[in-house]
Amino acid sequence: MDDIVITGYGIKAPGILDKYSFLNVLQKGICTQSILHNSAQPHASIVAGIIEDSFLEINGVNYRRYPRSVRMAVAAALDAAEMSALHHFQPHRIAVIMGTSAGAILEIEKYAKDAFDLRKFPVHGVSLVDTHTLSNAVAEAIGSNGSAFTITTGCSASLDAILLGKQLLESGTVDACIVGGTEAPLGQWTINGFKKIRSLSTETLIENAGVPFSTQHSGFVLSEGAGVLVLERRQSANARGQKIYGKVERVISRNEGQKLLTSDISGRHMLDVFQETIGNTKPSYVNSQALGIDINDQIERFILKETFGCDVPITSIKGMIGHTFGAMGAMQIIASLLSMEYGFIPPTTKTTGDGFEDIPIVFETQHQAVESVCITTHGSSGNNACLLLTLT
């Protein structure tokens, strides 16, 4: 079976619009978060990851009627397609598989008051609540008319998209896959929802919000963004002389079968997924889900210690860019590709590791050769997904 490799990627994140701005943030440990102001309730302002660009027009095309999450995905997908020279492939042999959690929640909030007034209801209202508008729009933008799927499995969505893309390539069904995730969740429905279950940080000081691996802080930083990758078989990449950035060695995804808003706090389900993903590989480091929620971060500590003790470093990029739900897995992969290409482990910022002193957290940028990285994601829906990324 031919290797499945990554030949292109695109990212849109707070303070990050391309490969080199992301590389700068990762190498220097720059926090790109800011304050999301609530004009109606000034006391309810929060720390968040905000992208300044509107993406209303992309390459001369008007996307004003598309949800913000879709616009970001299109912009990232076009970058990925250009990097990988995706035009080489026949359009019907390119699959699009995109993940999301919040979908078009911003636009649904905006037009909710008009839902019962036909005169005011937007003509594109149906497309806003159809989450598959995401993958369809990406397919149209890159010129694909192959398979198109939208994955809505919460925080593991983009890794799940990669899993499906890998399987399609291995079966020979398609020749290339655009995969990834996108989120634009910075609306009151999402904010109040996560405040209600006490998992969103309510700190107003950026340095105290969304602190990974710390028992002295609580809650994550909500962020928007998109991460998109191009997958293909090694044979096709070599045949056309396309640069290969990394190999998707294995992806495992499972659901815990838990009740609404609950997940396995023991970490045993995640441990099984993690250990099956890495197999006999000892990765250079773990690019972790850790985001500032104690249960999640403790599970990351548990699976690392159970598997490697203190022999494998662990880091989290959430202190820099926040948490982007279903797009986060793809962003962690892109961060890992950059660390493999440029030889460094990105730091876990904001934290001193209070309560996590028994694991080797990377606090400062660590310059070294990186041969492989394990990416971990899990969410409150009980989905656990891990991916092992290796050099070619």
Rank of each mutant, 00 (worst) to 15 (best):
T315E: 01
Q368G: 10
V312I: 14
G292K: 04
I333L: 05
T376W: 02
S316E: 15
I345W: 09
G353K: 03
D311Q: 11
P346M: 11
M331Y: 05
F363L: 15
G326N: 03
I375D: 06
V312R: 01
D354R: 05
D294F: 06
I317S: 09
M331Q: 15
E306H: 05
E306P: 06
I375N: 08
D358S: 01
I295Q: 14
P346S: 13
I333H: 00
H378G: 07
M340F: 00
N296C: 13
E364S: 12
T377L: 09
S339R: 03
A330S: 15
I375G: 07
N384L: 02
S380C: 03
G292C: 05
S339C: 11
I321N: 08
G353H: 01
R301C: 05
P347K: 02
C310R: 15
E371Y: 09
E364T: 11
E371P: 01
P313F: 10
S339Q: 02
I317L: 07
T351Y: 01
M340C: 02
I333Y: 01
E300M: 04
A290G: 08
V370A: 02
F308D: 10
I314M: 07
I321P: 05
V373A: 10
M320G: 05
H323E: 15
A369P: 12
S380E: 12
T365L: 05
Q368C: 15
E357I: 00
L291P: 04
Q332P: 00
F302P: 08
G319M: 08
F356Y: 15
I345Y: 09
